[in-house]
């Protein structure tokens, strides 16, 4: 079932006289509960596509239907309300609020929902537990390692039970063991909770956790690989 449907999606920026087009007429469909990795060189449009899907940027032209709704037509306020329930965003540099504890950071998106304090508390602890960081609930970001910070950021992203998780190089600032742990956590969120995940990455190692890898180049789709394709390709290479 198609969850995300991009049609001729284009994003342009003006820089003085020049027009930069990080995304150039992209067509893409993503099914519900897919785990999609976006790869490509710098400037290929990965983060731009991620931001458009997350509703924090608007396309210059084209359509972006999410669950049948064209989010490009939503007003600023309605788009914010849509993000609050439908999107969980995981940043490369975690972007936790430094003066708030892990618990308070995870609670932030829930303040927008009509929940009692007790209900919020239960949801926050559940998210922290799922992210494997509940024992650090009272810690501030400065008291956490990079891997722990990213777990808190993931808990914040899933606490509202969004339909789509978008992650912009979630392991880009982590050492290998931490990166592996974060990727396993994301895979669990995809497999156990059925979250649709779109992840930008530069690390080919992390794409093995995804079901599908999309290669972008100059704002266009260069290659679209399913996990099965990659396994077969690898098997062919071994046989040769």
């Amino acid at each position: 079932m198609t969850l995300i449907d991009c049609q001729q999606l284009t994003r342009e920026y003006r820089k003085g006289e020049n027009v930069i087009r990080p995304l150039d007429g992209l067509d893409l469909r993503v099914d519900k509960s897919e785990f999609l990795a976006l790869m490509g060189p710098s400037g290929s449009g990965k983060t731009t596509l991620l931001n458009l899907i997350a509703g924090i940027d608007r396309p210059t032209s084209g359509q972006l239907l999410i669950d049948g709704q064209d989010i490009t037509k939503l007003s600023r306020n309605r788009l914010a309300a849509w993000r609050a329930t439908e999107i969980g965003y995981i940043f490369q540099l975690y972007n936790l609020v430094p003066v708030l504890s892990a618990f308070e950071n995870v609670e932030l998106p829930l303040l927008l929902q009509p929940l009692s304090r007790k209900q919020r508390q239960a949801r926050v602890y559940e998210a922290l537990e799922r992210a494997g960081i509940h024992d650090r609930a009272d810690h501030y970001p400065r008291q956490l390692s990079g891997g722990q910070e990213q777990r808190v950021a993931i808990a914040r992203a899933i606490v509202t039970d969004p339909t789509i998780l978008v992650a912009d190089e979630p392991t880009g600032d982590l050492d290998k063991p931490s990166a592996e742990a974060i990727m396993r956590l994301m895979q669990m969120l995809n497999q156990d909770l059925g979250k649709t995940i779109i992840m930008v990455t530069h690390d080919p190692g992390t794409t093995r956790y995804a079901k599908r890898t999309l290669h972008l180049d100059k704002g266009r789709l260069a290659r679209d690989e399913m996990v099965q394709d990659r396994i077969e390709t690898h098997a062919d290479e071994v046989n040769v």
Partner: peptide
Amino acid sequence: VLQTLGYA
């Protein structure tokens, strides 16, 4: 970040 989380 707050706006990304849905703050209007």
